[in-house]
């Protein structure tokens, strides 16, 4: 059964070489690899966490900006509405004022017209009175040469006046 009896020479070499292999690999080989893999794992985990944090922060910023934009839009709307109102009011006021002004001008014009008319009427009357006095004077001067004629004349005139008056 030589297969189950370890050979001393091979045993010696096996101890020697396995010893070297274990010494080298368990010191400079596997620990380096395991350490780096661990470090890389930690690094990746950190990076993921940071990315997650950055994402939430970004979301927050996004939400903030949305609020800001929303507010701005509301403000904008409000200002437009306000200005619209103001405009309408102004236009209305202007209209009212213009109407008032116009009414005033018309009123003044009417008053002036009336007074002008009265004045004109008065003038005309005075003119007519003066003219009639003149006419009467001339008529009287020419007709009142004879007594009869005068009398007749006076009567005629009186008739006329009374007729016109009745």
């Amino acid at each position: 059964m030589s297969l189950l009896v370890p050979d001393s020479g091979l045993l010696f070499w096996m101890v020697f070489i396995f010893g070297i292999v274990v010494f080298v690999l368990a010191r400079f080989g596997f620990p380096v690899i395991l350490k780096m893999v661990d470090e890389r794992k930690a690094f990746i985990e950190d990076s993921l966490l940071m990315a997650e944090k950055a994402r939430t922060e970004l979301e927050k910023v996004k939400a903030d900006s949305e609020v800001i934009i929303d507010n701005a839009r509301k403000e904008h709307l409000r200002i437009i509405n306000e200005s619209n109102l103001l405009k309408e009011q102004l236009v209305k006021e202007a209209k009212v004022k213009a109407e008032q002004e116009a009414a005033k001008v018309i009123e003044e014009a009417r008053v002036k017209i009336v007074s002008e008319k009265d004045a004109a009427m008065r003038e005309i009357r005075r003119e007519v009175a003066a003219l009639s006095v003149d006419i009467a004077e001339k008529v009287l001067k020419s007709k009142l040469a004879s007594g009869d004629e005068q009398e007749e004349m006076i009567n005629k005139l009186l008739d006329e006046i009374t007729i016109s008056k009745s």
Binding site: D7, S8, G9, L10, F12, W13, M14, I17, F18, I20, V21, V24, L25, F28, G29, F30, I33
Partner: peptide, 24 residues
């Protein structure tokens, strides 16, 4: 007393060298 580099010892050395180089 026999510590010859036999076939098995030779293989052992060779594999040890390959393994050490590989892992390092």
């Amino acid at each position: 007393l026999d510590i010859s580099i036999t076939k098995n010892v030779f293989t052992l050395i060779l594999s040890a060298v390959i393994l050490i180089f590989l892992i390092l």
